[in-house]
Simulated assay, not measured.
Amino acid sequence: MGKHILLAVTGSISAYKSADIANELTKKGYTVDVLMSKSSLEFITPLTLQSLTKRRVHTGVMDEPNPSKINHIELTKPADLFLVAPATANIIGKLANGIADDLISTLALALPSDRAKLIAPAMNTNMYDHPIVQRNLQTLKEIGYKEIQPRESLLACGDFGSGALATADTIIEKVVNTLEGEEA
């Protein structure tokens, strides 16, 4: 396959599911570079994702492992697909409004516009349905992001409704279909 995926993990309780996503995509032969927001580190460790992908996990915009290269620029060059899973309301807002104050949002702005971009929201139903979040998702769609719809489920907060991260299988299927040209 030889395709390269940037998996951005943000601070949602569903961040633990990123391990399954990274693991399965790696098993399918994709190269998976993981980017983690500061808040995602409260839910899952970089070591877990590094062990599954066999790749260094990136956690900070100022973390520059190679002094001769700018990390958030270099990471975009081989990328065929940028996947944000889970995507919090915070990162959705940052991406839709061009705010670049962490690794994920900075890298997203540096990503060439012709790269495939998928976003899998995960949050409370009221947050997901909020007009600002919906407007931000619409803005992202207008600039080339495809949304992987959240599920309706019992949420971590105890509410029932839309906002649960799509299943790992659904996300993986969408990634594979996008990379293999099976989606318009």
Rank of each mutant, 00 (worst) to 15 (best):
Phe43His: 02
Ile44Ala: 03
Thr45Gln: 04
Pro46Arg: 05
Leu47Arg: 04
Thr48Asn: 03
Thr48His: 01
Thr48Gly: 04
Thr48Lys: 00
Leu49Arg: 01
Leu49Ala: 03
Ser51Pro: 14
Leu52His: 05
Thr53His: 06
Thr53Ala: 03
Lys54Arg: 06
Lys54Gln: 14
Lys54Trp: 13
Lys54Glu: 15
Lys54His: 14
Arg56His: 11
Val57Phe: 04
Val57Cys: 05
Val57Arg: 08
His58Met: 02
His58Tyr: 13
His58Ala: 01
His58Asn: 13
His58Gln: 02
Thr59Asn: 02
Met62Gly: 11
Glu64Leu: 07
Pro65Trp: 14
Pro65Ser: 12
Pro65Tyr: 08
Pro65Gln: 02
Asn66Ala: 06
Asn66His: 11
Pro67Asn: 08
Pro67Gly: 09
Pro67Ser: 13
Lys69Asp: 06
Ile70Asn: 12
Ile70Arg: 11
Asn71Gln: 13
His72Met: 04
His72Gly: 02
Ile73Gln: 10
Glu74Ala: 15
Glu74Phe: 05
Glu74Ile: 07
Lys77Ala: 12
Ala79Leu: 00
Asp80Gln: 13
Leu81Glu: 06
Leu81Cys: 08
Phe82Ser: 04
Leu83Arg: 02
Leu83Asn: 06
Ala85Lys: 05
Ala87Tyr: 00
Thr88Tyr: 03
Thr88Ser: 12
Thr88Asp: 09
Asn90Glu: 14
Asn90Cys: 10
Asn90Trp: 03
Asn90Ala: 08
Ile91His: 05
Gly93Phe: 00
Lys94Pro: 06
Lys94Phe: 07
Leu95Glu: 01
Leu95Asp: 00
Leu95Phe: 00
Ala96Thr: 00
Ala96Gln: 01
Ala96Val: 00
Gly98Lys: 02
Gly98Ala: 03
Gly98Tyr: 04
Gly98Trp: 01
Ala100Gly: 10
Asp102Gly: 04
Leu103His: 11
Leu103Trp: 10
Leu103Ala: 08
Leu103Asn: 11
Thr106Ser: 14
Leu107Met: 05
Leu107Val: 08
Ala108Leu: 07
Ala110Glu: 05
Ala110Thr: 12
Ala110Met: 09
Ala110Cys: 14
Leu111Glu: 11
Pro112Thr: 14
Asp114Lys: 13
Asp114Phe: 11
Arg115Asp: 14
Lys117Met: 14
Lys117Asp: 01
Leu118Asn: 05
Leu118Val: 09
Leu118Ala: 10
Leu118Ser: 12
Ile119Leu: 12
Ile119Asp: 07
Ala120Asp: 12
Ala120Gln: 02
Pro121Gly: 02
Ala122Gly: 07
Ala122Tyr: 03
Met123Gln: 10
Met123Tyr: 12
Asn124His: 11
Thr125Cys: 03
Thr125Gly: 03
Asn126Pro: 04
Asn126Tyr: 12
Asn126Ala: 10
Met127Gly: 15
Tyr128Trp: 15
Tyr128Ile: 08
Tyr128Thr: 15
Pro131Arg: 11
Pro131His: 10
Pro131Phe: 15
Pro131Glu: 10
Val133Trp: 09
Val133Phe: 09
Val133Ile: 15
Val133Met: 12
Val133Ala: 13
